[in-house]
Amino acid sequence: MSKPVIATASLAGCFGCHMSILDIDERILDLIELVEFDKSPIDDIKNFSRPVDIGLIEGGCCNSENVEVLRAFRKNCRILISVGECAIMGGLPAMRNTIPLRECLEEAYLHSPTVAPEDAVIPHDEELPLILNRAYPCHEIVKVDYFLPGCPPNADLIWEALTALLQGRPLKIDYPILKYD
């Protein structure tokens, strides 16, 4: 039997959750015995090469590219997991959700004290992904199967979730490893 396949992506995130995956330390040697990695920034594979068993999503959706990647993950992954506060509730990028988009863009690109007034322009190049009206949690865009909170989630929580999933047993969370910060 071939090994289960994992893919990961960072959407509107800071890569902190990926760093937390690496924080499983030497257990990463056990992990590569257990699974293979497909599309992921960890191995720099850019496109899906086969159907994937577990997709780990860091970050929520702030622009059209995030939505496209997330939908591709849902299509290619049997199980999709939201990893971290941004994927679950939008996180820091969602702090703009209470402010209208135009107000945010004008503040950042026109009225900010570090903007030179003569080159003040709101970016609108067609090469750039279109920014969404607000930051969206991943489960508001596609169906998400599991959620691992934290900023970033504790490495022990990620390890426990992955091993429980691979061994087909219920998740057992020790109190100190579940945190929202």
Binding site: S82, E85, I88, M89, G90, G91, L92, A94, M95, N97, P137, H139, E140, Y146, F147, L148, P149, C151, I173, Y175, L178, K179, Y180, D181
Partner: peptide, 30 residues
């Protein structure tokens, strides 16, 4: 409730209740 940026995080009773009940994600839309 942006826990990662909140000074009260770790000492917050609302958060502590959510930890006690092991809430991974709210069932309602934000």
């Amino acid at each position: 409730h942006f826990c990662p940026t909140c000074e009260k995080s770790g000492n917050c009773e609302l958060q502590a209740l959510a930890y006690r009940y092991q809430i991974m994600v709210p069932r309602f839309p934000y």
